[in-house]
Design a protein around this nucleic acid. Sequence first.
DNA 1: TTGAAAGCGATACCAC
DNA 2: GTGGTATCGCTTTCAA
Lengths: 340, 340
Amino acid sequence: MKSGQVTIKDLAKELNISVSTVSRALADNPLVKSTTKKAVMELAKKLNYQPNFTALSLRSNTTRTLGVILPQVVHDFFSQVLRGIEDIAYSKGYSVIICNTHESYEREVMDAKNLVNGRVDGILACVSKETKDFTHFQEFKDRNIPLVFFDCVVDDITTDKVIIDDHEAALIAVNHLISTGRKKIAYVGGPENLLISKNRYKGYKDALLEANIAFDENLVLHRETGDFKDGAGAVQDLLKKNVEIDGLFAATDLLAIGALKELKKAGYSTPRDVSICGFSNWKISEIYDPSITTVDQPGYNMGKISSNMLFKQIENKDANHKAETKVLKTSLVIRESTQI
Amino acid sequence: MKSGQVTIKDLAKELNISVSTVSRALADNPLVKSTTKKAVMELAKKLNYQPNFTALSLRSNTTRTLGVILPQVVHDFFSQVLRGIEDIAYSKGYSVIICNTHESYEREVMDAKNLVNGRVDGILACVSKETKDFTHFQEFKDRNIPLVFFDCVVDDITTDKVIIDDHEAALIAVNHLISTGRKKIAYVGGPENLLISKNRYKGYKDALLEANIAFDENLVLHRETGDFKDGAGAVQDLLKKNVEIDGLFAATDLLAIGALKELKKAGYSTPRDVSICGFSNWKISEIYDPSITTVDQPGYNMGKISSNMLFKQIENKDANHKAETKVLKTSLVIRESTQI
DNA sequence: TTGAAAGCGATACCAC
DNA sequence: GTGGTATCGCTTTCAA
């Protein structure tokens, strides 16, 4: 009973029976005499026995733990995804170990290495912005560790993926701006190398195309981040160019708000002069004054679907599993920033 | 080599040597002949051998893992705390398993039970709003599992704690409102049973006292949550009572913003008519229009200090450790909402 | 109905 | 230098 942990041995010794019997009794094995069983149960309760987690894991070669690798946790969207993951995991008696890479490639590699050695039964991952090399993820596949990508996925790795139809979402958002009579619509986007940025940008362009509005390179601003400051910076650049706009589609809510605040500084009112649409439906977009029209991403659902796919892999580890990609629909939330 | 995992046995068999030698070679033990060592190392690299985490844990009775129990992750403050914790943990080669209780007592108990069986080497915990019974935390102490509370702590359990001087922070914040000439200052607070709420409220009252401003019960509104909606609701109640205010101190930033927006609706401008101060310095308080004066909590530092205290406990597990409570200082960030 | 012993993957002590 | 074996805590055959 060293280090405060009561083991099955302690129970056996105390009751003068073998560890096998104790183990069986605790497992409520019908072979064990009911009096013995009762005695074991009672002592276990009395000494507050808890089976050692590590021993169980070693024996069963499972950890009842999922690993989640994601770039940020202070992020309304990811937090919803996490909730979805946790809800499914908890319902199956699994724990979740969250690795927060803080958008750092180095940290992501460390985290992956840390999870590769049998610490978890499966991995859910969303790759960071910085990541361009994916061998640390390939490692999971090589070791036959179940892996599901969500949101920011890796094309080169064949495994289950859950993504959002960013292209369609952007298309619908920009259509909405157009339908309210806007014609000179600017685009402010996040990191150009990200697939999600590319798709949102393409959605923007396609919406203009469909509406027969000429595409104008001058109205497009790709930024290094999806942050507030970059939204403001983008508008400054726009104003310097002296171009006229009456609408703005931003690839994140923070970009939208940064842009809005900067436009206001320059004397433009939203939605009157420039109507603005963001992306993600962060809480702030609801609270902001004016509230921001934005694309709602089904984060909770994405978490649930991803972990369900992961559990399917875990449960059929031997069977060869056909990788699947699920594309989730979004919806547009119309608020003050586009209501005229 | 079942389930894709290469073990020390596989290496031994392949090289026709014993597992002991392989183990020693991998540990770079000087007793091993260098040619043997080289052969082992090379084969290990070739087969991509990784020592099994669970076996290591069982052997050493340590998991090199910290458990963090907290009520929310989408929370600027907690996320900073987490970063502080992670930075220290990573630097010591530890992983962090985050249990997000979503402010639910039930979930908190589940999480605690889940961590009590040797899955982690120590626990960092911030209790949820709902929690009134603390036996699940006492369990850690009983089992001699290192435990540190941060932010929302449990008075009845003797262990290391890291808290913020909420009372002083509130005092300084309200002093600031008074110093800008405000005299009819309302208080909008979160759940009354929380220690942090009590202290912030007391800070508010003491600031008035010090300034010889009569305390007026009508200006005080305790709410069920610290959320945006409750801020708005509080102001609605205030307006119904037909009381005049020229300042407002809220126990959270979201309460502050909810109040501000509602006041604006009723025709009051901030800071001109009512200046407003929040608490926590969430990102939104910087971005909001107008930006919000608020109390900055040293979250990152709190995380670092907490985990350092935890490691001290882990490293001196046998020595009887004297519990300590650290109180961290805050600072006031003055922004537009109180600049006249 | 129960006990002895093997085994999960790794380390470390004791022989030789 | 190297191999055999006990051990960590638990489950599960195999024998009795």
